[in-house]
C-alpha cells in the first residue's frame, strides 16, 4: 500500500468520525426539541401553579400537586367529551375498516371487471371535491346535522388508504394462493375472510391506527356540523377549555386582600389545568402509536409502489 493511499484512508476515517460527532449532536438536538414540549406539559401539570407561572418549572416537577387534576376531574363536559370521542373512535374506525378492507381487496383481484373505471371514480375524489359549503348543504339535506352519525358516516372511505391497502393485498396475497383455495372448493368470500384477512394483520393494524387517530384528534367536522354541546367530542371541549381566557374578575377596589389572593390563585390554577387537560386528552394516542410504529415505513413503501 502506498503512503498516499494510506493517507487518504486515515483522512477518510477522520472525516467519518467528525461526521458521526456532528450527526449525533444534531440528532440529540432534534430529539430534545421534539420531546421537550411534551415533557414540559407533563411536569407543568403536576407542579405548583405558582412555580409554573413564574417560570421555575423547567427540568423537573416543582411543588408536586394534584390540584390541576382535581380541577379537571370535576369538569363534567370534559368527561362527556371523552365518552363521545371513545364512541366516535371505536364505531368510526370499525366502520372505516368495514368500507376499506373488502373494497381494497376486491380492487386488488384481477378477476374483477371494470377495475380501471372504479379506480377512476375513486381517485377523482382525491383531487376534486364539492368544497366546504356544498358538503355542508349535503349534510343538511341528508338530515345529518347535529346527529352523532355525522361524526362517523361521511367520507368514511379513504381513497388514499385504499390505494395502500390494495397494493398490500396485491403483493402479499398472490393469485396462486387464491387459485389453490378455489380448487379446494372455497368461495370468494371465504377466501377473503379466512385467508386474505388473517395474512394482513400488519396493514389492518396500521389502517386501524390511522383512522383511530384521525377520529380522536378531529375537531373541525364537529365544529361544522354539531351544535348540541352534549354531542361534542373531546377535542372541541379541549378547544373551549384551552381558548378561554383566564380572566377571573379581579377588582382591586372592592376585594379584600384575601379575596384578591384567592382570585389570583384560581387564575394560576386555570393555567396549569390546561396542561393537565392536554395531557389527559392526548395520552391515549401517544401511548398507542409506538406499538404499530414498525409498520409505518412498510406501509409508506407499499403505498409508493405504483399499482
Amino acid at each position: 500500500m502506498s503512503v498516499k493511499q494510506r493517507n487518504t484512508k486515515i483522512r477518510q476515517t477522520r472525516v467519518d468520525a467528525i461526521f458521526d460527532v456532528i450527526n449525533y449532536t444534531l440528532i440529540t438536538l432534534v430529539v430534545l426539541v421534539c420531546i421537550y414540549p411534551l415533557y414540559y406539559t407533563v411536569i407543568a401539570s403536576f407542579s405548583d401553579p405558582l412555580e409554573v407561572t413564574r417560570g421555575n418549572v423547567t427540568v423537573w416537577i416543582k411543588g408536586f400537586t394534584f390540584d390541576s387534576y382535581k380541577t379537571v376531574f370535576d369538569y363534567k363536559p370534559l368527561w362527556r367529551g371523552y365518552r363521545n370521542t371513545i364512541i366516535y373512535t371505536v364505531v368510526g374506525t370499525a366502520y372505516n375498516l368495514f368500507l376499506l378492507l373488502p373494497a381494497s381487496y376486491a380492487l386488488s383481484r384481477k378477476e374483477v371487471k371494470g377495475r380501471g373505471l372504479l379506480m377512476g371514480i375513486f381517485v377523482f375524489t382525491m383531487y376534486f371535491g364539492g368544497g366546504m359549503i356544498p358538503t355542508y348543504l349535503n349534510m343538511k339535506n341528508l338530515g345529518l346535522l347535529d346527529s352523532m352519525l355525522v361524526m362517523i358516516l361521511p367520507g368514511a372511505f379513504s381513497v388514499y388508504n385504499m390505494i395502500i391497502t390494495r397494493t398490500f393485498f396485491a403483493t402479499s396475497f398472490p393469485n396462486e394462493l387464491a387459485e389453490a383455495a378455489r380448487i379446494d372448493g372455497a368461495g370468494e368470500a371465504r377466501i377473503f375472510f379466512q385467508l386474505a384477512l388473517p395474512l394482513s394483520t400488519a396493514i389492518i393494524g396500521v389502517m386501524a391506527l390511522y383512522h383511530a387517530v384521525g377520529h380522536w384528534n378531529s375537531y373541525f367536522s364537529a365544529l361544522l356540523y354539531l351544535s348540541d354541546t352534549k354531542k361534542y367530542p373531546l377535542q372541541l371541549v379541549l378547544r373551549e377549555v384551552l381558548m378561554q381566557d383566564n380572566g377571573i374578575a379581579i377588582n382591586m377596589d372592592s376585594m379584600t386582600t384575601e379575596e384578591l389572593m384567592d382570585a389570583a390563585r384560581r387564575q394560576r390554577l386555570a393555567e396549569t389545568m390546561k396542561y393537565s387537560v392536554i395531557f389527559i386528552a392526548n395520552a391515549p394516542v401517544l401511548a398507542l402509536y409506538p406499538f404499530v410504529q414498525k409498520y409505518f415505513t412498510k406501509g409508506v413503501m407499499i403505498g409508493s409502489v405504483k399499482g
Binding site: 373488502p102 375513486f122 375524489t125 358516516l153 370468494e188
Partner: peptide, 25 residues
C-alpha cells in the same frame, strides 16, 4: 365472483353520497 362486487358496494355508496353529491351542489 359476486362477493367481490358486493365488497365494493359500501365504498361506492359512500363516495357517491358523500363525495359526488356535494359536487352536484
Amino acid at each position: 365472483f359476486w362477493p367481490l362486487y358486493l365488497f365494493l358496494l359500501p365504498a361506492l355508496l359512500d363516495v357517491i353520497i358523500f363525495r359526488y353529491a356535494p359536487m352536484y351542489g
